[in-house]
Simulated assay, not measured.
Amino acid sequence: MELRADKLSVRRDARPVLQDVDCTLPPGSRVLALGRSGAGKTALFKALAGLVTPASGQVLWNGEDVARMGPAQKRARQAAFGMVFQTDALFDSMTVRRNVLLPLERRRVPRDEAEARADEVLRAVGLADAADALPERLSGGMRKRAGIARALAARPSVLLADDPFAGLDPGTARQVARVLLDVAGSGSLIVAAPDVPPELPLSRWLYLRDGRLLYDGPPAPEVETLPDEALA
């Protein structure tokens, strides 16, 4: 799926968190959304996934304005997205397997197919042996991988990962990075992080500051020193 932001602005509690962002992400994109806390990375993710309503501008999926879609059409299109949250957002009262099954149940995937998919993604992230464990018994890295498995169970063509390395030691971060790259396949992988993760080389950077897109291009470590005048 092609994602496009056209003069996209988003507000939270009347405060602008994204301002006039323009970007086009073709299918199969490998993107790092880079910026410090409050830069607008999460707001951009939520807007691209149709989870927040723009204050102005547009989000387009394959050229169609999300704001003009009816609820049923929008829900159907959102099935193409998988979200990995900064916090794993697992339900501690459910086993890892039940957590992974949740998005499939909501999509009314037949039970046998849903269980087969859950087992498949748990094997892919190396958690087959922990399928019946409660999340509280998992390490931080295992919980991250469980969150990735849940996002992947719906077989998304766009995987959005919001700061997936937060709180992880370097070895675990490398393991999570490998999982993200391996399981994204031919779909788009868009990762948000406050700093460049050395474990995850991505071919395109979006650098945000104060809700504005300051840079859109190949990896360029100097972008963090760009002056605000570059926003014009």
Score class of each variant (00 low, 15 high):
33 A>R: 13
34 L>R: 09
35 G>Y: 09
35 G>A: 13
36 R>Y: 09
37 S>Y: 05
38 G>Q: 06
39 A>N: 09
41 K>M: 07
42 T>Y: 13
42 T>R: 10
42 T>F: 14
42 T>E: 12
43 A>G: 06
43 A>I: 03
45 F>W: 01
48 L>Q: 04
50 G>K: 00
51 L>A: 02
53 T>L: 07
53 T>C: 06
57 G>W: 01
57 G>N: 01
58 Q>T: 02
59 V>G: 01
59 V>F: 00
59 V>D: 00
61 W>S: 00
61 W>Q: 00
64 E>D: 06
65 D>G: 00
68 R>F: 00
70 G>M: 03
70 G>P: 03
70 G>K: 03
76 A>M: 06
76 A>Q: 12
76 A>T: 03
78 Q>L: 08
78 Q>A: 01
78 Q>N: 05
79 A>R: 15
82 G>N: 06
85 F>S: 02
86 Q>F: 11
87 T>P: 00
87 T>W: 09
87 T>D: 15
87 T>F: 12
88 D>A: 14
89 A>T: 01
89 A>N: 13
89 A>S: 12
90 L>W: 14
91 F>H: 10
92 D>Q: 04
92 D>S: 09
95 T>C: 10
96 V>P: 10
97 R>M: 14
97 R>E: 15
98 R>K: 14
100 V>N: 08
102 L>G: 03
103 P>K: 04
104 L>T: 04
105 E>F: 15
106 R>S: 11
109 V>F: 13
110 P>E: 10
111 R>E: 14
112 D>N: 15
113 E>P: 11
116 A>F: 12
118 A>Q: 08
119 D>T: 09
119 D>R: 14
119 D>Y: 09
121 V>N: 03
122 L>D: 09
122 L>N: 08
123 R>K: 15
124 A>T: 02
128 A>N: 05
128 A>K: 03
128 A>D: 15
130 A>F: 15
131 A>C: 07
131 A>L: 09
132 D>H: 14
133 A>V: 11
135 P>C: 08
135 P>H: 07
135 P>L: 13
137 R>N: 13
138 L>V: 08
139 S>V: 06
139 S>I: 09
140 G>P: 05
141 G>R: 10
142 M>V: 04
142 M>T: 02
143 R>P: 02
144 K>Y: 14
146 A>R: 02
152 L>S: 05
152 L>P: 12
156 P>C: 04
157 S>H: 08
158 V>D: 06
159 L>E: 07
160 L>T: 04
161 A>T: 02
162 D>F: 11
162 D>A: 10
163 D>E: 15
163 D>R: 03
167 G>M: 08
168 L>G: 13
169 D>N: 06
169 D>C: 08
169 D>M: 07
170 P>I: 03
172 T>I: 11
173 A>M: 05
174 R>K: 11
